[in-house]
Write a protein that binds this DNA or RNA. Structure first.
Length: 850
RNA sequence: GCGAAAGUGGCGGAACUGGCAGACGCGCCGGACUUAGGAUCCGGUGACCGAAAGGUCAUUGGGGGUUCGACUCCCCCCUUUCGCACCA
């Protein structure tokens, strides 16, 4: 009977569905395991890149289930977002229709892959029974000042016509479409993620099962730097003096005696005031505007040449007492620190470049710890390392470290500054001027101001009818029935907020909803989230290293502080899987290089596809798709199939005792050894390591060994076609049958996470009922796996010159004697004196030096 | 520029704590079976010698070092990928 994957796969997928094989409930008696792959954006069609991610999780889930864990393995849809709305504009469908159709299609694709999902827990974030809890949480955050509204300059994508969070600006472009980002002034809702900045940063140290790379990215993203704010008073007036000082942020207050100018960002509020107070405000503004209009992206990434212009005003260096000029500089960022910096050209590269260009004074105030004070005349670049202070009055001779402390203390004493911690991380702007998202549940009442919607009035349902203009004004604002509401506080008229939430809100807590997905009284029951959480194994793309993974860590803390979950971190272990490329490029519709899993299933079956994507490379690595590789995986499965087909009648059924150590001949002992060694290797490769590729190769080796075993002369169970051929009536030794049964069954069980359909079918044909999913993982017996004879290589001067075959456990002394007696060894040693002889690691190898 | 990771046959990759480099698969070559095979099975696949057993040499980006022994550890260099990129 040939291997025909399609019928088998259909049969078992149906069986799993009807028996609800992967549905679970909390069971305190068993260890839990929460296995999750990043849920999918329903873009239309799953491609093999998705398949790879889901396979990694499914292999882990199925293996853990067999190893006795209560495994939660759910799936859902990150269903709000722009493409649905764009599709609606383009093809005149409703975003909901488009989304739900895509979900239906992709769900079918995933089901044809035989992934062991608890489908009853499926969620879609675009449905009110999900997003109402976004709204609920938003209100809780509002009550705690974790959600607030302010007018601010925001990142704007002209193509998507919406605001972007800082995290969503990648290389100055939109994370989704790459269009260069511009700015706008808008009233926006923000989540105060910065309240958790320290905690998010400190806890990174405890995430020891996350990829180092992701942690580094998060550390950089949070970007904590310790420094000081110092206020520089304005110097006497050309015209009218301003009382407000200029506050700068610096991490190098130790160099403040060298601050010979102060730089303002073009957007700094003081700049406009200086313009007003200047002799020629128009000319002043023109100069500033030249910088402001410079390409924002280029300015941010330092591609633009450093330029500035003198405001004509001066400020007093509070430590030297000198009046120093105030310049506007295009490279100073308004959004970082205070938007103003002190210029210390001797010790900062940018300031040095700027000072040289505009001929500003340079004052050295730090010398190297073991060298002389640099001579300004001979300097060709700034000396930015820490050192020892000079030309710094009473602080001379202090190290930079000590000086930072002393100078900060002095600033505090004089009331002109204080130590501070500055983060790169900004609060998360979540307002989006688009339709297809969660309505922000807020009312604006003329009398009462900003009023949150009452819990009992949730959800604020997204209206079905809306104009999708794509023009950048919120579509919801065009719907009077939506906008006009009653303020529940005063009963007067109120307007609804018409922006929707960033879809990253949806994905920041969905893993908790999976713990209790049908709950319509609360987001989830705390006890359930606490039973299942945190996610033990989470796999997905590296592109979420900062966005999704940092927001989720933030939300988990918010839920914790609401008393909803008993954990700080959402994900115990994170695996970032490599992408699937074709012709060296990411698969995408526009490039026309998408491999549709359904085509592959049609040709080779889901099991072959599953084996291929797990075998071809380690999960973290990128892979290049090849059809030949997939065929190879199919061949392997067909080989397993033929093997089991050939031996099935011999080994199926009860009454075959488990093999024991005694009475086995050499080939039988060898096979048992291989079986148990394979169990050990595969088990360790899957848990705790997730080396799926080497686990598959271990199984391949076992199959090769089984072919050899069955094909030994005289066996009746030869699998080679045309040689079935042992003399009629040959009956195998009962020991042979027992050993073979053990090997084949272990093989089928261990193959089942990779090729579940075929394995179930073979398991059934081997006479078992109840299904593999409910069968225990094979146990490894170290005694059996132990080799009886070992081959010990003998090295002479580092090169292997002989191999000794000796019984396991031969003593070191005996090995030395045997090695020296070996003919090959003697040939190489000849009459050279032996300098040293070493037996390593309990008889693994003999090393002779002559 | 800064930081991190990586570099192994024709290709994907393996080698766990420093101990037989190249497992497993793809591809290729040969053979068996066959009317036929792009199916299947067996064997080979760094170079050279040999019919074979076997032998000799080379070898993990390059150079140096530590060690009885280095893909693995240390130093320098080269290349690639990724991340950050005027953050004061």
């Amino acid at each position: 009977m040939d291997y025909k994957p399609q019928q088998i796969e259909k049969k078992w997928q149906d069986a799993w569905r009807t028996s609800r094989a992967f549905e679970v409930t909390e069971d305190p008696a068993r260890p839990k395991f929460y296995c999750l792959e990043m849920f999918a954006y329903p873009s239309g069609h799953a491609h093999v890149g998705h398949v790879r991610n889901y396979m990694i999780g499914d292999v882990v889930a199925r293996m853990k289930r067999m190893r006795g864990f209560n495994v939660l393995h759910p799936f859902g849809w990150d269903a709000f977002g722009l493409p649905a709305e764009n599709a609606a504009i383009k093809s005149n469908t409703h975003p909901e229709t488009w989304t739900l159709d895509n979900i239906a299609h992709m769900k079918g694709q995933l089901q044809r892959l035989g992934i062991s999902y608890a489908w009853e827990r499926e969620i879609a974030t675009c449905l009110p029974d999900y997003y109402r809890w976004n709204q609920w949480l938003f209100i809780r955050m509002f009550e705690r000042s974790l959600a607030y509204r302010r007018r601010s300059t925001v990142n704007w994508c002209p193509s998507c016509q919406t605001v972007l969070a800082n995290e969503q600006v990648v290389d100055g472009g939109c994370w989704r479409c790459g269009t260069p980002v511009t700015t706008r002034e808008l009233e926006q809702w923000f989540f105060r993620i910065t309240s958790y900045a320290d905690e998010l940063l400190d806890a990174i140290a405890k995430l020891d099962e996350w990829p180092e790379k992701v942690l580094t990215m998060q550390r950089n993203w949070i970007g904590r730097s310790e420094g000081a704010r110092v206020r520089f008073a304005l110097a006497g007036p050309p015209q009218s003096p301003s009382p407000d000082p200029i506050e700068v942020f610096t991490t190098r207050i130790d160099t403040i005696y060298g601050a010979t100018f102060v730089l303002l960002a073009p957007e700094h509020p003081m700049v406009e005031r200086f313009a007003q107070e200047s002799a020629d405000p128009a000319a002043f503004r023109a100069s500033v505007n030249r910088f402001r209009s410079q390409d924002r992206t280029a300015r941010m990434t330092g591609e633009v040449e450093k330029e500035g212009f003198d405001t004509g005003r001066k400020t007093i260096n509070p430590f030297t007492g000198a009046a120093v000029p105030i310049w506007v500089a295009n490279f100073v960022l308004v959004e970082y620190g205070t938007g103003a910096v002190m210029g210390v050209p001797a010790h900062d590269e940018r300031d040095y470049e700027f000072a040289r260009k505009y001929n500003l004074p340079i004052q050295v105030v730090v010398r190297p710890p073991d060298g002389p004070t640099p001579d300004v005349e001979k300097m060709t670049e700034a000396v930015s390392n820490d050192g020892v202070l000079v030309n710094s009055g009473p602080f001379d001779g202090m190290t930079s470290d000590a000086a930072r402390e002393a100078l900060t203390a002095e600033a505090v004493r004089r009331g002109i500054g204080e130590g501070t911690v500055q983060y790169r991380l900004k609060d998360w702007g979540i307002s989006r001027q688009r339709y297809w998202g969660t309505p922000i549940p807020m009312l604006y009442c003329d009398k009462c101001g900003i009023v949150p919607v009452r819990d009992e009035d949730l959800p604020v349902v997204l209206p079905k009818t809306a104009e999708f203009s794509g023009r950048g004004d919120s579509p919801l604002a065009q719907i009077p029935e939506f906008v006009n509401a009653i303020c529940w506080k005063c009963g007067g008229p109120a307007k609804r907020e018409t922006d929707t939430m960033d879809t990253f809100v949806d994905s920041s807590w969905y893993f908790f909803r999976f713990c209790d997905p049908k709950n319509d009284a609360m987001a989830f029951e705390p006890a359930k989230a606490t039973y299942w959480g945190p996610v033990d194994f989470y796999s997905g793309g590296i592109e979420h290293a900062i966005l999704h993974l940092i927001y989720s860590r933030f939300f988990t803390r918010v839920f914790r502080d609401l008393g909803m979950v008993g954990m700080d971190e959402p994900f115990q272990r994170v695996l970032t899987q490599g992408m699937v490329l074709r012709n060296g490029q990411v698969m995408s519709k526009s490039k026309g290089n998408v491999v549709d899993p359904d085509d592959m299933i049609q040709k080779f079956g889901a099991d072959a596809l599953r084996v291929y994507v797990t075998f071809v490379a380690p999960p973290e690595k990128e892979i290049e798709w090849t059809d030949a590789g997939l065929e190879g995986s199919f061949r392997f499965l067909a080989r397993v199939w033929r093997l089991v087909d050939a031996v099935c009648d011999t080994i199926a059924g009860d009454g075959i005792p488990a093999p024991t150590g005694t009475d086995l001949d050499e080939s039988e002992r060898a096979l048992r050894r291989k079986t148990h060694d394979t169990i050990r290797r595969v088990t360790q490769d899957l848990d705790p390591r997730v080396h799926l590729n080497t686990a598959v190769s271990a199984l391949m080796e076992l199959v090769n060994e089984l072919y050899q075993f069955c094909d030994r002369p005289g066996r009746s169970i030869a699998v080679r076609r045309g040689e079935t051929a042992a003399p009629a009536g040959v009956v195998e030794r009962k020991e042979t049958v027992a050993v073979l049964k053990e090997a084949v069954e272990a093989l089928v069980l261990m193959l089942s996470p990779f090729a579940p359909h075929m394995s179930e079918e073979l398991w059934e044909r081997l006479g078992h009922t109840g299904g593999i999913a409910a069968t225990a993982w094979p146990e490894y017996d170290a005694e059996v796996a132990k080799a009886e004879e070992v081959v010990v290589p003998v090295q002479i001067n580092g090169k292997v010159r002989a191999r000794l075959t000796v019984p396991a456990g031969t003593s070191d002394d005996d090995l030395q004697v045997l090695a020296l007696a070996d003919r090959q060894v003697q040939v190489h040693v000849k009459d050279k004196p032996i300098k040293k002889i070493v037996v390593v690691n309990g008889g693994k190898l003999v090393s002779i030096v002559v």
